[in-house]
Design a protein around this nucleic acid. Structure first.
Lengths: 142, 142
DNA sequence: AAATTATAGTTACGAATGTAACTATATCAA
DNA sequence: TTGATATAGTTACATTCGTAACTATAATTT
């Protein structure tokens, strides 16, 4: 007898559903606090965590398409949260770096992020939280 | 000492990243085979699995916004994969139902879905696959 | 029963997105 | 060296999306 298909147990669906729920919970925070989009938050976080880097680097680290990175960088630049510096040896490249204000917004959102993470951890329990993280990491490497 | 924030270990990010990866793997299939979008696939799958229902029901089951449902239903209707029937008692309501062709496309994608699920299960191993499904379900109920 | 409120679903419109084309610069090959 | 190819990043354009407004119908209140 042939296995039955169940949309709600189907991993792509289940993952997307969960991801949206969890992502939106945190998106509320950076949207309300700074009117930021998801792309902008990711670019900010990558710059905050890994320091000065090129748009290409940001794209690799965030998984964002280069046009999204370009637009997000431009938008964050408009707030004066980052500055660009052209590489002297390779003038196609711009090193992108947070300003003091950008750094400060990043730190403020980090705190919120850590608190949010903790909320999820409390809900799942430490053991399940770790297990989930590990499993997602494993699946990511497929 | 204050905990350090790590974007790549941050659940909203990790989940989204994994979800995109896994979703896109299956999206390739329905896109290549039928030029369907994700919304259309979800609507089709919900109709296939739960039978005739209203647009509102579909929205609840898929988590899609009603405008997305409306557009997806319209688009699938154009292919003649579903038909609508106005409720006689409440004329705001339309019961939506797959046609024979819609049913057949659904069954074909179910097979592909089951195969895809199996591929992921093979990669993770039965135990981890079950664990992941359970954890996602738990997180979903947060 | 008339006025009000609620629900189902569609549509209009501005914002966000992805693809592809483009500019500028650098590297490689003949 | 110069012609071809590759890379960094931006921009144009068509598509998709979400919000809000809208139409139609039903239910509720007065």
């Amino acid at each position: 007898m042939t296995e039955k298909f169940d949309l709600h147990g189907f991993l792509p669906f289940l993952l997307h559903h969960t991801s949206e729920k969890v992502s939106l919970g945190f998106a509320d925070i950076y949207r309300d606090r700074y009117k930021m989009t998801r792309s902008e938050w990711r670019v900010l976080a990558t710059l905050g965590q890994y320091g000065a880097q090129t748009a290409t680097d940001i794209g690799i680290r965030t998984g964002l398409h280069k046009t999204k990175v370009s637009r997000a960088v431009h938008s964050i630049e408009t707030r004066r949260w980052l500055k660009r510096r052209q590489d002297e040896n390779d003038r196609r490249i711009h090193l992108i770096e947070l300003t003091r204000q950008g750094e400060s917004a990043f730190l403020s959102l980090c705190q919120a992020g850590i608190a949010y993470n903790q909320k999820v951890r409390d809900f799942l329990g430490d053991k399940d939280f770790e297990a989930l993280t590990t499993l997602l990491g494993k699946l990511n490497s497929m």
